[in-house]
Structure formats: structure tokens, C-alpha cells
């Protein structure tokens, strides 16, 4: 449904809280709660992850990146987004999961972290998920193939799990540089 993806963008950009398909399924009128936090849920290598909607500046189709030497494997390079140069990383590689080929549903989440934009390539966007505080759990350690320190918390929604990512760790600049001076195999 490529059309609905563009609708997502428009709605997200407007910053409005809007009804999701689930809302309609549940009969639209439901208890209005002020303390629900909205998360963007997305898929990376078959797992579902989430990032708070407040941290997302934009969701875009994958753009051309320029590779940057001497950076870690997960750094795809830099891209020009509306005049600023931003780093773009591959979420699967960053999380230590197996990379999947890009498809039509691949997206780049453009997140604002410590005042600067960063791009994160993901497999697909699932949707916006409102989560109540009582459904959030502190990170219990590693989950599946995901290292524990990337996980900020776990959220239960509709019988499945959303792994909320800790952007402080995910986008730690210290990890962006490659190990100094790659040593060549001896001849």
C-alpha cells in the first residue's frame, strides 16, 4: 500500500494525533487517555522495534548515500536532506542482525537526536502504536538477537512485543568510527 505510506507521512508531519485502523476496528470511540505515548513501530530483520514519535522528524524513502571511509560497517554514509548533511546507518547491521535486501517497503527513519538529524534504514514501517506507561517494561537484557544495551524498554501491544530502542546507544558517535588502521592479512 504505497499510497497509505504517503498518508502516514503527511499525518506525521502535521503532528496531529489521529485514529488508526485499530481504532476503527475497536469501534472508534474508546477511552481517551492523556498519558499514552505514541511510538512508530517498524520491522528490522523480522523483529519489531519502536522509537518514540517525538524523536522522528520524517520518514523517507531510501536516498542515495555517499560512503564515508574509515567508518564502521553499519554506517551507510551521508545523505543530503533538505540542505543538511546527515549520517545514515543500517539498522540491521547496527543491531547485529542479518541484513535483508532493500525492498519497496524499505524506509529511512530520520530521527532527531541531541539536536542533529540521523537517518536509520529499516525494512518497513508497521504503524503508530499508542502505548500506556503500564505496558512498558524496563529493559530486561538481551532479547532474541538484540544486544541488551540497545534496548530502552519493552512494550506489549496486542499480544506482541515492541522493542523500544535507546537512541543514545544506537547513535553513539564513538561506535561510528571503524577500528583504527585495518590490518591487512600477512602475505
Amino acid at each position: 500500500m504505497p499510497e497509505s505510506k504517503d498518508l502516514w507521512q503527511t499525518l506525521l508531519a502535521s503532528g496531529e494525533i489521529f485514529a488508526t485502523e485499530e481504532d476503527y476496528e475497536h469501534g472508534y470511540v474508546r477511552e481517551v487517555r492523556g498519558d499514552l505515548e505514541q511510538y512508530i513501530a517498524f520491522q528490522v530483520a523480522g523483529e519489531t522495534y519502536g522509537v518514540s514519535i517525538g524523536q522522528i522528524a520524517e520518514i523517507s524513502k531510501p536516498m542515495t548515500t555517499t560512503e564515508v571511509p574509515r567508518t564502521a560497517d553499519f554506517v551507510l554514509g551521508i545523505a543530503n536532506v533538505r540542505g543538511s548533511v546527515i549520517p545514515v546507518i543500517d539498522a540491521a547491521a547496527r543491531l547485529g542482525l542479518s541484513r535483508r535486501p532493500r525492498t519497496r517497503s524499505s524506509r529511512v527513519l530520520i530521527v532527531r537526536h541531541e539536536g542533529e538529524l540521523h537517518g536509520i534504514l529499516i525494512d518497513s514501517v508497521v504503524g503508530v502504536v499508542p502505548i500506556a506507561p503500564e505496558h512498558l517494561e524496563e529493559a530486561p537484557g538481551a532479547i532474541g538477537g538484540t544486544r541488551g544495551d540497545f534496548i530502552q524498554s519493552l512494550a506489549r501491544y496486542e499480544d506482541s512485543l515492541l522493542i523500544v530502542l535507546d537512541l543514545d546507544v544506537l547513535l553513539d558517535p564513538r561506535d561510528f568510527l571503524s577500528v583504527p588502521a585495518p590490518v591487512r592479512a600477512k602475505a
Binding site: 564515508v68 571511509p69 574509515r70 567508518t71 554506517v75 551521508i78 543538511s84 548533511v85 546527515i86 549520517p87 541531541e114 542533529e116 538529524l117 540521523h118 547513535l171 558517535p173 561510528f176 568510527l177
Partner: peptide, 11 residues
């Protein structure tokens, strides 16, 4: 290049 890549030596 921004905070994340500023430290890349030679760029």
C-alpha cells in the same frame, strides 16, 4: 558532517 562523523580522521 555532524557530531556522529566529525571525528573521522582525514575528512
Amino acid at each position: 558532517l555532524g557530531r556522529a562523523l566529525r571525528a573521522v580522521p582525514g575528512i
